[in-house]
Design a protein around this nucleic acid. Structure first.
Length: 485
RNA sequence: GCCGCGUUCGUCUAGGGGUUAGGACGCCGGCCUUUCACGCCGGUAACACGGGUUCAAAUCCCGUACGCGGUACCA
């Protein structure tokens, strides 16, 4: 059996978005799980919507997510080039062969006459093509003359009148469409570029693609592609159409709707917000696929080994940010401390926090399990790096009683005198102080936490004090005593 | 409008003729912790509707509704 080849074929009309990433992920998982190859093909045939740096963005973010490809425009490969704009001659050749074999024709209609046709609620198909201005309605000599004179034209597929086109989708099952519902598709545009339909079929065949994995929105176009495969006498690759991702309210997950709901849309946004690539992959994988077990947290590698197309569902799925956040916390927690350090550092820098790696590591160890996002260290736990400037008013009201100042002050004196700043000593001093002042330990613990962090929540107090260090603790305690009185 | 695809807790989903309809996120409670989080335990909540088929239907069939997609010289 021949090697499995899958392609991810984005068009560079925008940056890589979360939906595109999911398609890429499924392509990747399938290819890798089958020991096959993954091809990145850039479908840049729409010159009007072309975005200069989109291809770069797509390539980079795919890589950042760990989705490495085997063949691509920059990597090259046995079927290069991998940019459709660089393969124009191929499409033209095949379009002409289709005209020769009677499966396509040249059309010269003006956009006005086509608009007119549609206004009459007519399709450009078997029912109307003979009324139009094309190579079916003019003598051969006239057509070649017009062609040679440089007149603008398109090549259209001659869709057969009344056939049922059927295919078996690996995900959706049997899909049937009547050719009467299909227009004579434009294959070559008047600017000489192929349309998606032609380029896609020609390239998939020439690049020996065995499995077409793409979004749901292509199902209605698949019969057109099948017609092309048949006209060329080529074997149809296996088809797998993935259900779409919907916005949380059910609509299309567009840039607009996503933004309105606080959902990042571009992959680079997720990454720059500090989402773990693995968490995003994990979340996306389970949006439409399930392993058939009750396991939920997977690395990319584990996904590869359990993935199968058969377990992809056919219903669209709504995007759920809460779940993504949960996955993020799960993956963050599984990170080695060295890796976590790398994740967290950019956010510390962003917040103007410049400290030694060794110290950041200590803090990471301390709060590892309390992090949902890499940025949390710089925000929720900023007190690990800078003295608190404010004290949570509710906390003060609840914990800073009349004796707090004197207790905290006494504790600071004891800490100052400590020769070994370890947790046991810290705890002993506190409890000993509590006993001598005849108060419960909590009477000191809470004000101390407040004094040192500005909040009432956080890691175990003695571990926190240890990490902060002697000088910082004493300074903060005394500072709080003056400020809170 | 026409064509296509879909519909199990709020969300992601398992299951697929006879189940107490399972798990996860979220939410709520409890335990742990003199804090908070993690963790653990428990709770909440679903087969869109109507007809068939069948001894039996959430599961099969047909309709309806709703959602999404397509209907471009966009992909």
């Amino acid at each position: 059996m021949s090697v499995i080849r899958v392609r991810f074929a984005p068009s560079p009309t925008g940056y890589l978005h979360i939906g595109g990433l999911r398609t890429a992920l499924y392509c990747y998982l399938f290819a890798r799980s089958q020991g096959g190859k993954l091809v990145l093909r850039i479908e840049d045939t729409d010159r009007t919507r072309f975005v200069e740096d989109a291809e770069d963005d797509i390539v980079q973010n795919l890589a950042r997510c760990g989705l490495d490809v085997d063949e691509s425009p920059m990597l090259g490969g046995p079927y290069a080039p991998y940019r459709q704009s660089e393969r124009q001659n191929l499409y033209r050749k095949y379009a002409e062969s289709l005209v020769d074999s009677g499966h396509a024709y040249y059309a010269f209609d003006s956009s006005d006459s086509i608009a007119e046709l549609r206004k009459r609620n007519k399709a450009y198909d078997a029912s109307t093509r003979l009324q139009m201005d094309n190579s079916l309605t003019h003598p051969k000599e006239v057509v070649s003359m017009r062609l040679e004179s440089g007149e603008e034209y398109v090549v259209r597929l001659c869709v057969p009148e009344d056939v049922t086109i059927q295919f078996d989708d690996l995900i959706k099952g049997a899909v049937k469409v009547d050719s009467a519902n299909i227009d004579d598709q434009v294959l070559i545009k008047s600017d000489g570029m192929p349309t998606y339909h032609l380029a896609n079929v020609v390239d998939d065949h020439h690049m020996a693609i065995t499995h077409v994995i793409r979004g749901d929105e292509w199902i209605p176009s698949t019969p057109k592609h099948i017609l092309l495969y048949q006209a060329f006498g080529w074997q149809l690759p296996a088809m797998a159409h993935l259900p779409l991702i919907l916005s949380p309210t059910g609509g299309k997950l567009s840039k607009r709707s996503a933004q309105r709901q606080g959902i990042p849309i571009n992959v680079s946004d997720y990454l720059s917000k500090g989402y773990e690539p693995q968490a995003v992959m994990n979340f996306l994988a389970l949006l439409g696929w399930n392993p058939g077990t009750e396991d939920e947290v997977f690395t990319l590698e584990e996904l590869v080994s359990t993935f199968s197309l058969e377990r992809v569902g056919s219903a669209p799925a709504k995007f759920d940010l809460d779940k993504l956040n949960w996955f993020n916390a799960q993956h963050l927690r599984r990170l080695d401390i060295e890796v976590l350090l790398e994740r967290v550092r950019p956010f510390l820098e962003e917040h103007g926090i410049a400290v030694q790696d060794a110290y950041i590591q200590k803090v990471c160890l301390l709060v590892h399990d309390r992090l949902q996002h890499a940025k949390d260290l710089a925000t929720n736990f900023s007190y690990c790096f800078v003295d608190p400037v404010t004290f949570d008013p509710k906390g003060v009201k609840k914990r800073w009683k009349s004796d707090a100042a004197s207790l905290v002050n006494d504790y600071s004196t004891r800490l100052d005198a400590l020769t070994s700043f370890n947790e046991d000593a810290l705890e002993f001093e506190l409890r000993d102080l509590a006993a001598s002042r005849k108060v419960g330990a909590g009477r000191i613990i809470h004000p101390v936490r407040l004094a040192v962090s500005g909040t009432t929540a956080g890691p175990g107090l003695f571990a926190l004090l240890r990490v902060l260090g002697q000088h910082t603790c004493v300074r903060r305690l005394r500072n709080a005593v003056t400020k809170l009185g």
